[in-house]
Design a protein around this nucleic acid. Structure first.
Length: 594
RNA sequence: GGACCUGUAGCAUAACUGGAUAGUGCCCCUGAUUACGGAUCAGGAGGUUGGGGGUUCGAAUCCCUCCAGGUUCACCA
């Protein structure tokens, strides 16, 4: 049992015995004691004042006395106004460390059979991935790792948007201006190659619209009648009619894109258990429409279009099926939700999708609830904000995006330059060195994307490259490398990884470190419950910072008492383990030297 | 116009869900390396938590209202 929980249970008993107040230990909250006061755990007694008709300070003192007398962990206490600050015996801390160090995988919850399906990165096949996709991918994979750590089975899925008018746009542009070029023939990554024609389409389209407007046609009409758009629409019809030539072109260009995507995925470390293609799922959902009509959840208008009325829940009426019987986005998403459940009976299904679709998912989930889907209560939209540039929004049509491949390459190069400047890895062979640059560069990037609350939009300034100091990936990685160095020395000087926990006096930073280490499993749980990787990032940063403080405060190998020396080595070892484990949850590797 | 999201120091971010003097990083200033890694550590400067009301022992947090920015409300995806 962790120390926090033990104290809460004793407090729960105390409240019951002293004041006849019954509060479950799980419902009590202890906060970390602020640095300027003595102790590690603080209980706030103000809220007890009314029920007990006593002043908070007195309550704190009575509780404190009870703990000292009855609770084995409590050594002493200090009361400041309504705050009970508890000091725990050093032996409790050091024994705690011993227990944890004997534990196989601290933080790993027992594996259960609950399944979480998580949809990550749903790219279009008409352009390469950009920084927004990276935010999505980092969040998504991190949440999957965290859920696994918290005991879930996890299934990572990707749905590729490989059909539709926007795909036809790059196809028609290629047909018109491609000159039979291929990614190979002009040495270009396939997704960038296709993206080039998507941009080309929009250039041509824009010019055609301008021309039409100049000849006196309204802008709206012009943008519906631009010749190249008509061509694209024609191509979509051909595609839907399975016209062989169109299908062949479509397949060829999509292959190029997938080759490009998989390179990007490999660098960032993205792997999926299942990939769905919209070309295979876009007709799904029509049977659900029927079902909804029969159940009276949907209704039909005179023109045969099908709607759902959500005005009772503060939303609007929403179209489910067009009057001509063709699908809309919602139809499809209803269908894929069912498909996903048929493929794997999940308890939770998480959609990592940008916040411009908040409303869409709100509606989708409410409809599935109305349809009494057994999985409806496990649905969650992990919504994240846009990534902005100093110049404003990223717009792929206008080419103002931060390209995913480019930013990763830049980060890796920056890491290389920085590492070489510091000159600490001389003697490391080339292959290992370039792996290190990748670890550091991507570590900085991923940490940057994960550490903030997903809901907030974030600003990315390419001019000021992502920092390697302070609250960053490389800071944490550095701490790990530093500890690794200690452990190498411990091994070479044959310091045993064991100590006597009952013969130690700890200093503040040592207690603080064990406190943090002890909290790791609880942090994993709360990150899993809230689908919030930033909790882990914050926690790991705190841990690394505390270690560096410890490192500066005390000496390890110059410590004269051998038991104390060994204790500090074990403490270092355990800290490193958690840093490694926690960074893994964020999808970030950790180096042994840098 | 309706709905939803966001607003904390020059910039970036946190606050255990209502608790102590609002933490932390970048930037700026001052210090620390004969010792285990200075991508580090210690100290300092910088705040009317967008504004105004309210609720109570206590508010960045809850309620009302206004302001700013964003997203969305299509027989688009």
């Amino acid at each position: 049992m962790n120390i926090d929980k033990q104290l809460r249970e004793s407090l729960s008993k105390a409240l019951n015995e002293l004041y006849n107040i019954s509060i479950e230990a799980d419902n009590l909250v202890l906060q970390p004691t602020r640095k300027e006061f003595q102790g590690t755990h603080t209980y706030v007694t103000f809220s007890m004042a009314k029920q007990t008709r006593k002043n908070p300070q007195l309550i704190a003192e009575e509780l404190g006395n009870y703990l000292v007398e009855k609770d084995a962990a409590t050594a002493s206490f200090q009361v400041v106004k309504g705050f009970l600050n508890i000091t725990v015996h050093d032996q409790i801390w050091s024994n705690k460390l011993l227990t944890i160090s004997n534990c196989e995988a601290w933080g790993q919850a027992p594996k259960g059979d609950h399944l979480a399906v998580i949809e990550i990165a749903s790219p279009n096949t008409n352009k390469p991935l950009h920084l927004g996709h990276l935010r999505n991918i980092c969040l998504g994979f991190s949440v999957s790792n965290i859920l696994k750590k918290a005991g879930f089975q996890v299934r990572k899925v990707c749905i590729v948007n490989d059909r539709g008018i926007h795909i036809c746009k790059s196809m028609i542009a290629y047909q018109l201006f491609g000159n039979e070029d291929t990614p190979d023939s002009i040495q270009m990554k396939g997704d960038h190659f296709v993206g080039k024609y998507y941009v080309k389409f929009n250039d041509v389209f824009k010019k055609e619209v301008e021309k039409l407007v100049a000849s006196g046609i309204s802008h709206k009409e012009a943008s519906q009648n631009a010749p190249i758009l008509k061509e694209a629409k024609k191509m979509l019809k051909n595609w839907e009619a399975h016209e062989p030539e169109t299908i062949a072109l479509w397949e060829k260009m999509n292959r190029w894109v997938y080759a490009g995507f998989s390179e990007t995925y490999q660098i960032i470390g993205a792997e999926f258990d299942k990939t769905y293609y919209e070309s295979e799922t876009y007709l799904l959902g029509k049977d659900i429409v029927k079902e909804g009509l029969e159940k009276g959840v949907f209704y039909q208008k005179d023109d045969q279009s099908v709607w759902v009325d959500l005005t009772d829940q503060g939303l609007d009426e929403k179209l489910i099926l067009r009057g001509d019987g063709t699908s809309v986005y919602m139809t499809q998403d209803l269908g894929t939700a069912d498909l996903r459940y048929e493929d794997a009976t999940f308890d939770r299904s998480i959609y990592v999708v940008g916040n411009e679709q908040d409303y869409h998912f709100d509606v989708l989930f409410k409809i599935l609830k109305k349809l009494d889907r057994p999985y409806a209560n496990g649905l969650y939209h992990l919504s994240y904000g846009m990534v902005d540039l100093p110049s404003g929004k990223m717009k792929s049509r206008e080419g103002t995006v931060v390209d995913a491949d480019q930013i990763m390459e830049d980060m890796i190069k920056t890491a290389e330059a920085h590492t070489k400047e510091l000159g600490k890895i001389e003697g490391v062979d080339k292959q290992e060195a370039s792996a290190l640059y990748k670890t550091l560069g991507l570590g900085a990037l991923k940490y940057f994307l994960i550490k903030v609350d997903p809901k907030k939009r974030m600003l990315f300034n390419p001019e000021e490259s992502i920092s390697f100091q302070g609250d960053t990936g490389p800071f944490v990685q550095y701490t790990h490398a530093r500890i690794s160095s200690i452990l190498r020395k411990a091994q070479s000087t044959q310091v045993p990884l064991e100590f006597d926990p009952n013969d130690l006096t700890l200093c503040t930073s040592e207690r603080a470190l064990i406190y943090l280490i002890d909290e790791y499993p609880a942090k994993v749980q709360s990150a899993a419950n809230g689908y919030a990787p930033s909790i882990i990032a914050q926690y790991i940063y705190e841990l690394a910072k505390e270690y560096n403080r410890f490192y500066a405060e005390v000496s390890i190998f110059n410590e004269s008492d051998s038991n104390n020396r060994q204790f500090r080595v074990v403490l270092s070892e355990q800290t490193a383990k958690i840093i490694k484990s926690g960074m893994e949850l964020l999808g970030i590797e950790v180096p042994y030297r840098m």
